[in-house]
């Protein structure tokens, strides 16, 4: 699994600067993996910092607004992943089971 140092990450991501990365770490919107050999960043951190830069550049997000946005995004992505898993499991079930579940969901979600 690829790991990056802070310097490598800064070189890799166009809009990333040293102070900006320090700011993200201070806000705890990105958390490098710690070890006795120093900090390192995983692929997920690279992708996350790239997104953070987009949010800062394109939407001017920083501070609490950025923290809130990321926590909502994490929840949304996570829920979407869970929903996908649920649907793919359901899709493998026999027609009868799927119909029963579908019916029940429609009942529950029916507007009053």
């Amino acid at each position: 699994m690829a790991r990056y140092t802070a310097e490598e990450l800064i070189a890799l991501i166009e809009d990333l600067t040293e102070p900006r990365l320090a700011r993200y770490v201070a806000l705890q919107v990105v958390r490098p993996v710690v070890s006795d050999a120093g900090d390192s960043y995983r692929e997920i951190d690279r992708a996350r910092v790239q997104l953070l830069c987009n949010l800062t550049e394109d939407y001017g997000l920083d501070g609490d607004a950025l923290t809130l946005m990321m926590s909502v995004l994490d929840e949304m992505h996570g829920l979407r992943g869970e929903m996908q898993a649920l649907m793919s499991a359901l899709a493998e079930e026999p027609d009868e089971t799927r119909q029963r579940v579908t019916l029940r969901i429609r009942q529950i979600r029916r507007p009053d």
């Binding site: 997920i44 992708a47 995004l73 994490d74 992943g81």
Partner: peptide, 18 residues
């Protein structure tokens, strides 16, 4: 390019307070 979403939709995202 792998977007953050590709990681965040998987189980065990270290950033999600599940």
């Amino acid at each position: 390019q792998r977007y953050y979403r590709d990681f965040a939709e998987q189980g065990g995202n270290p950033y999600r307070q599940q």
